[in-house]
């Protein structure tokens, strides 16, 4: 495993920990989109169907369990925990996530490498992950008042995507036959979605002012 990949996984892990920290210790999910969190739970559930059938490494299995466990517990917290539930900004989190799930499913049925259940589900999860952040970005833009932990959560998620792109470039030049168009194009689309947020995040950090997004 190369350094970009490891750094990518670690920033992904940090983003989840930041979010769990916010939810678990402060008992608040203000500014967090339940729609995005539900989409991530669906992404991991459909991607890691191989968790008990294909063993890759202990690292791989443990990370999969962490991402599955954390995404479902975040959804549980936001839906069922009395205090956390109260801080959920339901009125602004109105993105219709069916509008993302259905096109991704259709696209996965049309464009995939093998027409098997596991492969189509895996491809669906790749497409869905690319756009799953959209409800969160829309919510940020609507609330405009972004607290530090929420900003850091989205920043680390974006960092994870950018590092994965560097990882793919590295692997392409160092490993034979390393070509994965579906993953690359989806990953690129996903990273581009963060570009706008990154711009405002970094300029607010540079100018040492609170992060706000333009309307």
């Amino acid at each position: 495993m190369n350094a970009f990949r490891l750094a990518g996984d670690m920033t992904h892990l940090i983003s989840v920990l930041v979010l769990l920290l916010k939810i678990h210790t402060i008992k608040s999910c203000a500014g967090i989109s339940l729609k995005t969190q539900e989409l991530y739970a669906l992404v991991f559930a459909t991607r890691y169907l191989d968790i008990f059938t294909d063993f890759i490494s202990l690292y791989n299995t443990v990370m999969k369990l962490i991402f599955l466990g954390s995404s479902f517990s975040i959804v549980w917290y936001m839906r069922r925990h009395k205090l956390v539930q109260r801080s959920y900004d339901k009125d602004h989190d109105t993105f219709r996530h069916q509008l993302l799930v259905l096109p991704c499913l259709i696209l996965a049925l049309l464009i995939h490498e093998q027409f098997t259940f596991k492969e189509v589900m895996w491809t669906f999860s790749i497409y869905l992950e690319a756009v799953a952040i959209l409800p969160q970005l829309v919510l940020l833009q609507r609330t405009r008042n972004i607290d530090n932990l929420t900003g850091q959560y989205v920043f680390f998620l974006g960092a994870y995507r950018s590092l994965y792109i560097l990882n793919w470039i590295y692997r392409y030049f160092t490993e034979p036959h390393y070509v994965h168009w579906i993953t690359w194009i989806s990953g690129l689309v996903q990273t581009l979605l963060y570009a706008d947020f990154f711009y405002y995040y970094i300029s607010s950090w540079k100018n040492n002012v609170k992060l706000t997004l333009p309307a």
Binding site: D54, I56, T183
Partner: peptide
Amino acid sequence: IRLKGEKDEL
């Protein structure tokens, strides 16, 4: 062709 164990990314 995808080789077995190639999906080593998360």
